[in-house]
Design a protein around this nucleic acid. Sequence first.
DNA 1: GTAATGTCTCTAGTGACTAGAGGTTCAAGA
DNA 2: TCTTGAACCTCTAGTCACTAGAGACATTAC
Lengths: 138, 138
Amino acid sequence: MFSIGELSKRTKVKVSTIRYYEEMGLLAEAERTSGNQRRYDKAGLERLSFIRHARDLGFSIEAISSLIELQDHPDRSCEAATNIATSQLEEVRAKIKRLKTLEKELSRISKGCDGEGVSEDCYVLASLADHNLCDREH
Amino acid sequence: MFSIGELSKRTKVKVSTIRYYEEMGLLAEAERTSGNQRRYDKAGLERLSFIRHARDLGFSIEAISSLIELQDHPDRSCEAATNIATSQLEEVRAKIKRLKTLEKELSRISKGCDGEGVSEDCYVLASLADHNLCDREH
DNA sequence: GTAATGTCTCTAGTGACTAGAGGTTCAAGA
DNA sequence: TCTTGAACCTCTAGTCACTAGAGACATTAC
């Protein structure tokens, strides 16, 4: 059994974030010492690692809740889990696409001014003021 | 002179968002009718278009504040503006990079399970539980 | 004149934490 | 056994960029 600080060190999740996850129902309420401090075991460590890994991959708290629910019922169909993963993948792909459009536009705008002139003549500012100076929709 | 609703329609920025921008100091306080309703002119429209365009490109409110400050002083050096644009571009590039790593990992994980089995055997859940199943760091 | 629509301010909620205040408990050394 | 300092506790409020809704007032069209 170890403390919340120890759990934090091992998982690289901040103490306050662990407490937050507990409040959100991602982590079961921890056992307590007689002095009311949380104590964790291997199961707690594994669950928090699962959560951290899923967060790193961009899953929302809500999605992780569903995944944990499934994990706790080994006999259920895992269709929901694959659906969650697939839609997360789609979201990531959509974000990449959008960001690539932004990147092109920003890079074009940035190149338009070397920063050595005066704000009145700045292509960056002009581009922002006038959407018509843009290459495409974004 | 036109109302906030009209401005909202023309710029596709929600009425409540316009008021929020005013509160944040991005938009000057609008003139008011005798009945206390906001009225805008061409200058207001242009400024809001500028803000919307910059937000679309992912600039923060704070960054936009600085850009507007520069716009209001046509004689100042535009170095700050190009710096803001460049660092925004860098941020976008960093995000893309990170998302691409996620995409690879998610796609690999997703492919590992067709969703027809049972949660106990699900590769998606197993991957999340065990970071060692991952291809690389993320 | 009336009714419908638009606008006003103010408060609170979103997601996923994070920081800090003020107080309590634990563990290690004397 | 006692003391001290680090770690822990709960609770509140702040972050960012909005968004929704309540309850009241203004404007506009008929």
